[in-house]
Nucleic acid binder design. Structure first.
Lengths: 161, 161
DNA sequence: GTCGGTGCAAATGCTTTGCATTGAT
DNA sequence: ATCAATGCAAAGCATTTGCACCGAC
């Protein structure tokens, strides 16, 4: 798979410029403090490397023996959104789902309407199209979210339902 | 604007095969009843012809002098989702937003990160890309949701903030 | 030493539900 | 006539907030 492939496999762990310093810089710029709790939340997010919900983060933190309250976790999630490090993702769910996005191509999602299977993918073509649409309208692209609803091969085989 | 345009203007009111009969058929298939309340809710949705929230629907219904309770409105919204007539749309909002989708090309959304302005658009290219991605992976496309985050011309001009 | 941060528990607000009554087929 | 639908009010549940104490800079 090459970068020009419409669909490129996801690297399992994408090593990044230190995210924590990005967060620290954002906090400083806002006159806010970089606390251990906030660092712990970001670490837990990095450890998951994929979609997550607030409740899952709390579990991850507990598992790591890091004690961060529910309130602080939610507050930190909001800060990370403002910092442009994470974004909301996934429709059709009661709880908010988030994904790490800073410095990455957006990861798009494909959901099977029969089995519920969720697949992440990346499409350089989609990003290019998004940029073209923005350019035509005079907007400056920042990011996007793309979710496909479809029926997976298993779903078509009628193995479920 | 032609159908091959990446961005085609939205028809102001797209006349459709009778949506109510689609709904009625779905309800019958589930052993459910087509009540006046459910018809009223669907009518109100058709009248809006765009994004809406549950609360807005209630107002629309009141305006039309149709008395449907909040509970029934929410219940009908869920039925319409199951029937594939409406879907959820838009991230980053506390309330769920829905859009009429049955028999239409999906309408995509572009949100300005400075001013909050929301623009709807359609892209045939995007649908084609979606179909291609599905085909490559052996999935059957059903629909999609696409939301662009960008800065509008006004936002770039710094008129806000 | 100072503010801002944290944790707790209570509050909020959208959405769902239980139950007695009403109504579509 | 029957069985599901409605409306109301109460319950649920994810997320936010007020406040007293705590800790990073």
């Amino acid at each position: 798979m090459t970068p020009t492939d419409p669909i490129s496999a996801l690297p399992k762990a994408q090593s990044m410029a230190p995210l924590c310093s990005v967060f620290r810089r954002y906090l400083k710029s806002q006159g806010l403090k970089y606390t251990t709790e906030r660092a712990d939340v970001l670490d837990a997010i990095i450890a998951r490397d994929g979609l997550f919900e607030a409740e899952e983060l709390l579990l991850e933190l507990r598992k790591r023996g890091q004690r961060v309250s529910k309130a602080t976790t939610y507050r930190t999630i909001n800060l990370l959104q403002n910092a442009g490090i994470i974004v909301q993702a996934l429709f059709d769910s009661k709880q908010s789902h988030y994904q790490l996005i800073y410095g990455k191509e957006p990861r798009d999602h494909m959901v099977c309407m029969k089995t519920g299977r969720l697949v992440e993918f990346q499409s350089a073509e989609l990003t290019a199209l998004r940029n073209r649409i923005c350019k035509e309208l005079g907007w400056l692209p920042v990011g996007h979210r793309f979710q496909i609803y479809a029926v997976s091969p298993e779903g078509q085989a009628g193995k479920i339902r």
